[in-house]
Design a protein around this nucleic acid. Sequence first.
DNA 1: AGGGTGACCTGTCGGC
DNA 2: TGCCGACAGGTCACCC
Length: 271
Amino acid sequence: MPELPEVEVTRQSFAHRIARSRIVSVTLGKPLRWPLGCPPSDLVGRTVLGVRRRGKYLLFDLDRGLLLVHLGMSGSLSFANDLPPAGVHDHFELLTTTGMLRLHDPRRFGAVVFAPGEQAPMAKKLLGRLGMEPLAGEFDPLLFARGLKARRACIKQVLLAGELVVGVGNIYASEALFQAGIRPTAQASGLSRARADRLHGAVRDVLGRAVERGGSTLRDFSNADGAAGHYQLEAMVYGRDGQACRVCGSTIKSIRQGQRSSFFCHTCQRN
DNA sequence: AGGGTGACCTGTCGGC
DNA sequence: TGCCGACAGGTCACCC
């Protein structure tokens, strides 16, 4: 479910409320992608200093150590004082002095992992190879263009891999490539500097606008307050195969790349 | 070494 | 109505 915009929107919806709270109790449901990495009771009494985001991970800074939270494909967080009783797909609950944080994740591709610090082995394994943050100043056009030159793969795959730039998932990869006029099948290394620059701008634009719209709610995403996103309403290509391109009227096509769907306009986008 | 593939898990939807 | 396969917002471990 969640790409960078959904994760960031989630963070913004509760980070200020959980900051400076103290952990009262921890409840685990079914196993997630990785084990927590410490006995749940070890977290009790610790203070949540704040919540940052790195790529699609939320980093909960504690007074000692941090929690890494990933929403996988189907995860969402809720934070409130009056949540309904936990259901079968609620697999992690953090009761704090300012509210209850709950992870709902039917497919359980998500994870909650404790690490003593960002240099701890598990934290390095998960965060160590992540690329540039697309909405931060570090997202440099020249570095981006150089990175593309070095990859022998389709541009769509390079965006999804997250080693060059993080946070671009299956929806926003198709959308950014449309905005840049580049087909998902184009070879990354073959893009001119001008087209690389256009893609750099498109990634920033698309993700930034999606955050402003509250993310995309395709089936069930909502932020920690339960609010849905609206960016899906302005999708130009994602999920629109067979429909008319909003720019030129051509029929939007869908192809499979690496067992994922890609959507593009044959006319507006070129290899 | 980098790039492709399978695996993880549950729910939903379309077709027969 | 029921069954079955395909597919869904991610990404790691493994193979060549």
